[in-house]
């Protein structure tokens, strides 16, 4: 069974195998519901979402968040620490200043290092503005895979606009966009029981005040990453693969120790000059 729905700002496709049609349908519904739940928790556009509340008030008072939000923030903090700060999903003020996100409260020092997570309570030692666009898609795919497993599905593939995870005994062929020609797909290899995510700016780059900007930001300098290359990471969990593509794009170093920590493989496709 195969279905596709618009979610997470992209098209999410779920393919699964089940011998019973009713079970397949229930699993499919649960998986899409899990993705929709992640989307509403992390939304910057809904004022009462967990992330909106953190951005508005976590520096003033502790904010109680959903169990999934806490899990996602814990993963983000772990990535932040293990990458020496290269992964930082608190760059929303920069993206907003380039017109890539709506404007919000001022947070000049916005960084994940100000975030304090205590179980399901979130505080911040300074104003910060999170944008979980760099990891929430992968996290949503993982939750959807969990939902399928709970319904007894053994074999599936979920693809959320290039962030994908496969489950089961089969090997899935992975194709990556050629950064020199984003309409062309290149066969990259086969993947079993794992996830693959890619970051590249071929879809997010735009002009702001005569300067080229992108949705990939180096937290050290605040500058946009403008490399034409594409940055893919293969890892057991999609949230790690997704987050690590940002570490790869910023560092351009596939042998950083944090990739090995997450059992991840990093690959860079170079764009033709």
């Amino acid at each position: 069974m195969k279905a596709m729905r618009p979610l997470l700002g992209t098209f999410v496709e779920i393919r699964l195998e089940a011998c019973d049609r009713a079970i397949a349908q229930r699993a499919m519904d649960d998986a899409f519901a899990a993705i929709a739940r992640v989307q509403s928790l992390m939304s910057l556009f809904e004022p009462q979402s967990d992330i909106s509340r953190i951005n508005r008030a976590a520096h003033l008072s502790a904010q109680r968040v959903d169990d999934w939000t806490a899990q996602l923030l814990a993963t983000a903090l772990d990535l932040h620490e293990r990458s020496g700060g290269l992964f930082d999903c608190a760059i929303a003020p920069r993206l907003a200043s380039w017109g890539l996100l709506p404007k919000g409260e001022e947070a000049p020092q916005s960084s994940l290092r100000h975030l304090i997570l205590d179980e399901q309570s979130v505080r911040a030692s300074a104003p910060l503005r999170l944008d979980l666009g760099g990891i929430a898609k992968g996290f949503a795919v993982d939750r959807a895979i969990d939902a399928l497993s709970q319904q007894g599905i053994l074999s599936a593939c979920i693809n959320a606009g290039g962030d994908l995870r496969v489950m089961g005994a089969h090997e899935e062929a992975i194709h990556l966009r050629d950064p020199s020609d984003p309409n062309a797909l290149r066969f990259a290899g086969t993947l079993k029981d794992g996830a693959c995510a890619t970051s590249a700016i071929y879809y997010s780059k735009s002009q702001h005040e005569g300067r080229e900007v992108s949705a990939l930001v180096d937290p050290r300098s605040g500058e946009a990453i403008l490399s034409r290359d594409s940055f893919s990471v293969i890892a057991p969990l999609c949230c790690h693969a997704d987050g690590l593509t940002k570490v790869l794009a910023i560092s351009q170093d596939p042998s950083l120790p944090c990739f090995a920590h997450y059992q991840a493989q990093a690959l860079i496709l170079r764009a033709a000059a």
């Binding site: 290149r186 596939p254 042998s255 990739f259 990093a266």
Partner: peptide, 8 residues
Amino acid sequence: IAAIHGPA
């Protein structure tokens, strides 16, 4: 067009 990096 492609150069691959990584332990694989």
